[in-house]
Amino acid sequence: MSAAALRPDAEQPAPVAALTGVAQRFGRQVVLRSVDLELPAGTIVGLVGANGAGKTTLFSILAGLLQPDAGERHLFGSPADEVDAAARARLAYVAHAPQLYAGLSARENLALFADLRRACGLTTRPADEVLLALGLPLAVLDRPLATHSRGMAQRVALARALAGRPELLLLDEPFTALDARGREQLAQVLLAERARGAAILLSSHDFDTLLAICDRVVLLERGALVRSAAHEGDRAEFRRSAAAIWQAGPDDPVSPAPDLC
């Protein structure tokens, strides 16, 4: 599964983000073995894997919070040994936890990060617009964050990420804590982001939602991207091959399917 094989069409422009042979280990604990991943513009890539498979580490490396032990990281078409502020301005990372200041209201949290962006001359879109699309009533924005439910905090974190119109959107389990309606709304928002041209990497345990919106699904297992399935026009075929990936046990060979590596 080389990087080229993962790319649906080799003649496409350079991907928004790419990892080549990225590895990370702490002593004898291997988190990532050798990960090749490309995130082209205007696609949603679903990342599935058991807990502890290395998903969060993968996100951290892409977001520049962690330097890989080995391998290369390309962001926005150029090698990124360090993810500098200019590169961080073009990506957004929503971690597993909402990462919001509990002492501030939701609006103040959003305003702080918008102001920080503005200090580098970057614009943000009004948070209200995103929040409404995510189904968060604006009336609750001024309440202290401690009174928000986990789902509401998750929406605020998503709004903070989307406000900067990122070209690369890294979402670690964004559907957790959202109710069925929230998931539907987030799915619509993500499809709109894809239409805008953003590259999205999305991890989730909610396989049905992933299948509904992703262009490609990759399975991260024991620190390596082992199998992938791409959506090539036929939703039912994609669903079948992706389900085969998901259901294959750690050591089971996958039954023949169109886009397996």
Binding site: R33, S34, L66, A70, P79, E82, A224
Partner: peptide, 18 residues
């Protein structure tokens, strides 16, 4: 906090998992 960015080239990457 985040480490210096001297990425090792893939020559020392782990053996191909394929």
């Amino acid at each position: 906090l985040v480490g210096a960015g001297v990425a090792h080239r893939p020559r020392d990457r782990p053996r191909d998992r394929n």
